[in-house]
């Protein structure tokens, strides 16, 4: 691993870990640590951005073609997507889901060599940039949607059980969480569609068999397409769509493992 890459891994990891710990602390005693948490997210994400830039400039081809490299890029996309919402006070609680996950996945990516600057796939660079990039961007969106759905269910349980401290923890409204879950998936699904289309086009032109990776990816697409249909056409709202978003995300988690075989 290049020296500069190593130098950048540490602040990224430290930022994410600090944010994860601060969010847990903020969950226990609301309002005290959220500012530290968001700064951890920002610093970690900026360091990881610099790391990705170093990887992109030093690698001979697409630097995130390996499983660990993809994971590195995936973490960056998830945290980047979170930053869009996480900077707004009511959505900071989402960090309790996102940041421990990001810290854990980034650690795995690093230990598996995905944060170095030697990564290179044997597959074509442009194909990988579109295929892997789009699919990972979609997966990042689905992860965020799952976080929003989880937050919806957690808050619903607190509201329904009349938890006395329900107002002490800052959180978005149920309606906002429900709407954002739907919108995030609405944006992420076209990215997945395009990513899969690029993959299928390459399969058509260069040949090859239909494997388990493709099956899970297509199943994921079907699950999220069904989500959008039920949410926007059949009028599903609230708890049912939250469970559906979480169930579909289970497929994303399954699909992320075979990405190792790219």
């Amino acid at each position: 691993m290049g020296e500069l890459a190593v130098i950048l891994v540490w602040p990224a990891l430290a930022g994410y870990l600090e944010a994860a710990v601060a969010y847990v602390g903020d969950g226990v005693r609301p309002g005290r640590l959220s500012r530290f948490a968001i700064w951890g997210v920002r610093i970690g994400w900026l360091a990881q951005t610099a790391l990705l830039v170093v990887q992109a400039t030093r690698a001979e081809g697409f630097p995130w073609g390996t499983w660990a490299g993809s994971l590195n890029l995936f973490v960056w996309l998830v945290v980047g997507a979170y930053l869009i919402w996480g900077c707004r006070a009511p959505f900071r609680l989402l960090g309790l889901v996102v940041m421990p996950l990001a810290a854990a996945l980034f650690t795995v990516a690093w230990l598996s060599g995905g944060a170095g600057d030697e990564g290179r796939s044997e597959l074509g660079d442009i194909f990988l940039a579109f295929h892997v990039g789009l699919i990972l961007a979609a997966f990042a969106g689905f992860t965020l949607a799952a976080g929003l759905a989880g937050l919806y269910l957690w808050q619903e349980r607190r509201l329904k059980s009349h938890a006395p401290g329900v107002l002490r923890q800052r959180a978005p409204s149920q309606l906002a969480l429900d709407t954002l879950t739907g919108r995030t998936i609405l944006v992420a699904l076209p990215a997945l569609t395009l990513g899969l289309a690029v993959g299928l086009a390459r399969l058509g032109s260069e040949g090859g068999g239909f494997d388990a990776v493709m099956a899970v990816a297509l199943l994921t697409w079907v699950a999220y397409a069904a989500f959008l249909f039920l949410r926007y056409e059949a009028g599903w709202r609230g708890r049912r769509t939250a469970y559906l978003a979480l169930a579909a995300f289970a497929l994303v988690a399954v699909a992320l493992v075979p990405v190792a075989h790219f």
Binding site: Q155, L159, V166, L167, A171, P172, S173, Q174, L175
Partner: peptide, 12 residues
């Protein structure tokens, strides 16, 4: 005001 804030937690 508690009732109003709880309603805001549901509807924004």
């Amino acid at each position: 005001s508690a009732a109003a804030e709880l309603a805001e937690r549901v509807f924004g």
